[in-house]
């Protein structure tokens, strides 16, 4: 899923300091799962904003709505009535959400309430880790099913580098696993260490964002 974290309330307050009335719009997709932008977080953020502005003597009216998803135009539509007389929308979806809202309402300011951080998953309760960089051409089959593009600090295809120590990466002061150590151990367990004997060639990054913003077209699904 897309993992996102809340922006500090002070940053959001600064973005909407000129506003008298806003909508806080959540999303029932990934950000609900990672506890940063679902219905519950919409309520919390709305209360925090109201309270902060009340304390400042500058009341703010905050409407609350949580979209089914913000990455589909049809699920943005229910905001139409709510946004009629607001000064801005604060979206707490991943950064796709505010951009869909911006596209639908050309004259309405929209602000992100989250920082979208990565494509990943939960490691334990309250901890999420990055697993994918969406490079557009998955090569993890060559590496025991583990991704060196994303999980090696240097995206090495021919690791591990000299900074691998005791299974940990030199980046992150011992908190990050050296993915190349894990790749090595896994291929050893699978009896496939020979996969690591030859240099891995040049990755084609044109399928990644380096080739320009991407569009995926499935002709059979187009109407």
């Amino acid at each position: 899923m897309v993992v996102a974290e809340s922006k500090p309330v002070t940053e959001i307050l600064d973005m909407i300091k000129e506003c008298k009335k806003v909508v806080v719009a959540g999303c029932k997709g990934c950000v609900t799962v990672c506890n940063s932008g679902g219905e519950k977080e919409v309520g919390i953020l709305a209360s925090e904003l109201r309270l902060a502005r009340k304390v400042a003597g500058d009341d703010l009216e905050v409407l609350e709505y949580t979209c089914e998803r913000q990455c589909d135009p049809e699920y943005i539509e229910p905001l139409d009535d709510l946004v009629k007389d607001v000064d801005a929308v604060v979206s707490i979806a991943c950064s796709v959400g505010p951009q869909y809202i911006a596209a639908r309402y050309p004259f309405l300011p929209v602000f992100p309430g989250l920082n979208t951080v990565f494509i990943g998953g939960a490691a334990e309760h309250g901890v999420w880790k990055e697993y994918c960089q969406a490079c557009g051409h998955c090569i993890i089959g060559d590496f025991g099913g583990l991704c060196p593009v994303t999980r090696c600090a240097k995206s090495l295809m021919n690791g591990p580098c000299g900074g691998s120590s005791g299974g940990k990466c030199e980046v992150g002061k011992g908190t990050i696993d050296c993915i190349w150590h894990l790749i090595y151990e896994r291929l050893k367990n699978l009896g496939q260490l020979s996969r690591l004997e030859n240099p891995w060639g040049f990755k084609n990054w044109s399928t990644s964002r380096d080739g320009g913003p991407r569009t995926m077209i499935r002709e059979e699904l187009r109407k």
């Binding site: 690791g159 591990p160 900074g163 691998s164 150590h181 090595y184 260490l193 690591l196 004997e197």
Partner: peptide, 15 residues
């Protein structure tokens, strides 16, 4: 030669 996994260091050199 002082990084880990130690036994892989020569393999990487060979690479």
């Amino acid at each position: 030669p002082f990084a880990d996994p130690f036994e892989f260091r020569v393999v990487r050199m060979a690479k």
